[in-house]
Computed example of a mutant assay.
Amino acid sequence: MTKLVVCAYHNVGYRCLEELLKQGAEVALVFTHEDSPTEEIWFQSVRELAERHGIPYLTTDINEPVNVAKVRELAPDFLFSFYYRNMIKPEVLEIPRRGALNLHGSWLPQYRGRVPVNWAVINGETETGATLHHMVTKPDAGDIVDREKVAIAFTDTAFDVFTKVTEAAVTVIARSYPLLTAGTAPRIPMDLAEGSYFGGRRPADGLIDWTKSAVQVYNLIRGVTHPYPGAFTYLDGKKVIVWSAWPAEGSAAPGAIVSAAPLLVGTGEGLLELRSLQAEGENEVAADQFTAAALSAEKRFTHS
């Protein structure tokens, strides 16, 4: 039987590991992560899935010498990485006899790197995907085994797209795993010149630039709204998170409040209707419940 070591976290990790188990894979060891106390945990637990199936698991970094030695001792045929957050070092990638593969949440080579779903939404893309590829030293750069496209609707949030990408990831694993075990899976060289690379995002990167167009600001908002930290601005020096918005016709100075009902704000091109907001230290509310005193015509949203 084909022996696997699986590095997994988040919903993609959970669902892909689940699919491998459905196909009868022998998973000798799972590497996952401890949940961060500072992060909103809205996704399924790989650790709990491993426990239910009696699979040994570790939450320490696979790259630690003791763990590298453990993987060598197990001598797996394949190593899979499904949304594992640590870069896996070359010495580990060389251990599995038949290859080390990663499931990436984009249509590679587009959106290599971190948080590809969020970046795709923020940049207003109309499609993305899930890609299974061989791992090499350079991130998200090895030969492609299989890909599945995902449509991004203009109304989709990053959470909506991530849900679609998760389903696409399962489809890819379901198709690819039998081919990998049979030794008939394709290997398509990745042309990095046709792609793009993006780094990680911090909560501070959610600051709204009102000089951008209404559509660009809207894309940022839906790209980092729940369960992510949210896009934010300032009103009278107080931080305000904008959880939901919609582009509208019209024009006004960037950040200027045009009306309170609906709550319309000027941008570099067009107006943006703010629909759900949360002032610092307060609860999230619909725009019509937002503090009336804050919405006078003299007010405007700012960068700080």
Rank of each mutant, 00 (worst) to 15 (best):
88 I>C: 14
205 D>S: 01
108 L>D: 05
137 T>P: 13
31 F>P: 15
8 A>G: 10
269 E>H: 08
297 A>M: 07
286 A>D: 14
34 E>V: 14
260 A>K: 15
173 I>K: 01
221 I>P: 12
223 G>Q: 06
164 K>D: 05
223 G>D: 10
203 P>V: 10
37 P>N: 13
83 Y>G: 00
240 V>G: 12
301 F>T: 10
258 V>C: 06
18 E>P: 00
183 G>V: 01
18 E>V: 00
149 K>S: 07
4 L>W: 08
47 R>Y: 15
211 T>P: 14
96 P>R: 07
257 I>K: 09
262 P>T: 09
175 R>A: 03
80 F>Y: 10
87 M>G: 07
24 G>A: 00
92 V>M: 10
7 C>K: 08
131 T>M: 01
113 G>P: 12
110 Q>I: 02
273 E>V: 10
269 E>W: 03
209 D>T: 01
284 E>H: 00
78 F>S: 03
295 L>G: 10
132 L>A: 00
56 P>F: 04
230 G>W: 09
95 I>N: 08
154 F>W: 14
105 G>S: 05
129 G>A: 01
231 A>Y: 02
57 Y>I: 06
20 L>D: 08
286 A>L: 14
177 Y>M: 04
194 E>Q: 13
85 R>E: 12
191 D>H: 11
292 A>H: 13
103 L>A: 02
169 A>Q: 03
199 G>N: 14
240 V>C: 07
185 A>H: 07
35 D>H: 11
244 S>A: 14
23 Q>C: 04
77 D>T: 00
182 A>E: 08
112 R>F: 02
204 A>R: 15
43 F>Q: 08
169 A>Y: 03
45 S>E: 12
288 D>R: 15
48 E>N: 14
303 H>N: 13
11 N>D: 03
250 G>Q: 06
107 W>G: 07
159 F>P: 00
90 P>Y: 05
162 F>C: 00
264 L>H: 12
254 P>E: 12
179 L>I: 01
264 L>G: 11
299 K>D: 04
105 G>C: 02
30 V>W: 06
293 A>M: 12
87 M>C: 02
28 A>G: 03
47 R>S: 15
191 D>M: 02
86 N>A: 15
214 A>F: 04
26 E>K: 05
207 L>Q: 08
106 S>A: 04
284 E>S: 07
74 L>K: 11
154 F>C: 12
294 A>K: 15
99 G>V: 01
185 A>M: 05
43 F>L: 04
104 H>E: 02
172 V>N: 01
67 N>V: 02
221 I>E: 13
33 H>I: 03
104 H>Y: 01
203 P>T: 11
38 T>K: 15
225 T>K: 08
159 F>S: 05
71 V>R: 06
24 G>M: 02
302 T>K: 13
232 F>W: 06
216 Q>G: 09
93 L>N: 09
113 G>L: 05
143 D>N: 10
167 E>Q: 01
